[in-house]
């Protein structure tokens, strides 16, 4: 790997100015589980690597007064799944971060980093989209927010402009009678990249009989993780049944335009969208009822 300079600013403003100065030649390091490999393999190059793990705003998480979760961008996976409050409220995210790589990866990899890496097959992004997360971005021009569903723009690309970095994510309080789930299909049982991933969130009526709101998101079926809007909207008002889940799965397939590659043929991936949508909806509803 070509050598670079390394900084680890402790203030957000310093990070922004360092990133701005280096422009296209800067890369952000959080858990490093993607960027270090990419630099090593020559898929990315950098003159400056900015380690953001010493900036308090990025490493903390807290529940706001409204019970929303404010999750620092470099909070590693293990802190998410080991925190009982987070894992109780945002089960789709917990499902996802528990299966990103092995334990060694989860010790370092962050949810924010997984989002910024913008892999079409990222595990946490469908969960974030299903949970309606919002990304908080800071940069030389100030702060802005972008919904998780709009954060990725192409494989490996995101909305961050020169000098900007992802500071945190807000995950809205899931609300009563709600549940969520993330599942992916992989040929092995761990240590694999999703052939297809699906995250589902549901909010039920107070009797737990009908779906009031749903959000379904998919990975590895398009250039970026995608929000299955039509399927999600259709679910509002539907009763809870296998047939409904299956129909939602069929509708979710409409946003899938997968490729054929070594991880799976396109036709198979499209089929799996139906299977995983159905399965995650069933799990999410089950969780919503308990």
């Amino acid at each position: 790997m070509i050598d670079f300079e390394y900084t680890a600013p402790t203030q957000l403003d310093d990070a922004i100015s360092q990133l701005s100065e280096a422009g296209d030649r800067a890369r952000i390091l959080a858990g490093g589980t993607d960027i270090i490999v990419q630099l090593r393999e020559g898929l990315q190059s950098a003159d400056l690597v900015v380690d953001v793990k010493k900036i308090p705003e990025l490493t903390q998480f807290e529940f706001t007064a409204g019970q929303d979760l404010q999750l620092g961008a470099s909070v590693p996976c293990w802190q998410v799944y080991e925190n009982s409050e987070i894992s109780a409220a945002y089960t789709a995210l917990t499902d996802a971060v528990h299966i990103i790589g092995g334990w060694q990866i989860q010790s370092r990899a962050s949810v924010g980093g997984n989002l910024c890496n913008a892999s079409p097959a990222a595990d946490s992004i469908p969960a974030l989209i299903a949970l309606d997360a919002v990304a908080h971005i800071a940069g030389p021009a100030g702060r802005r927010t972008v919904p998780a569903s709009e954060f990725c723009t192409a494989p490996g690309r995101n909305v961050l402009e020169k000098g900007e970095l992802l500071v945190s994510l807000t995950l809205p309080a899931p609300g009563p009678h709600s549940g969520s789930a993330y599942q992916r299909f992989i040929p092995r049982n761990e240590m694999d990249i999703a052939v297809v991933g699906a995250g589902s969130y549901v909010r039920l009526d107070s009797d737990g009989q009908k779906i009031e709101q749903a959000r379904i998101a998919l990975s590895a079926v398009a250039a970026t993780p995608v929000f299955a809007e039509e399927a999600s909207n259709w679910l509002a008002g539907q009763p809870i049944s296998e047939d409904v889940f299956a129909e939602a799965g069929e509708l979710a397939k409409k946003v899938a335009s997968p490729i054929d590659d070594m991880r799976g043929p396109a036709e198979y991936r499209t089929h799996l969208v139906g299977v995983l949508t159905r399965r995650t909806l069933a799990t999410a509803c089950e969780r919503a009822r308990t």
Partner: peptide, 10 residues
């Protein structure tokens, strides 16, 4: 952690 995925400077 996988020490191959940690920069020594970190």
């Amino acid at each position: 952690v996988d020490s191959c995925l940690v920069l020594a400077v970190e």
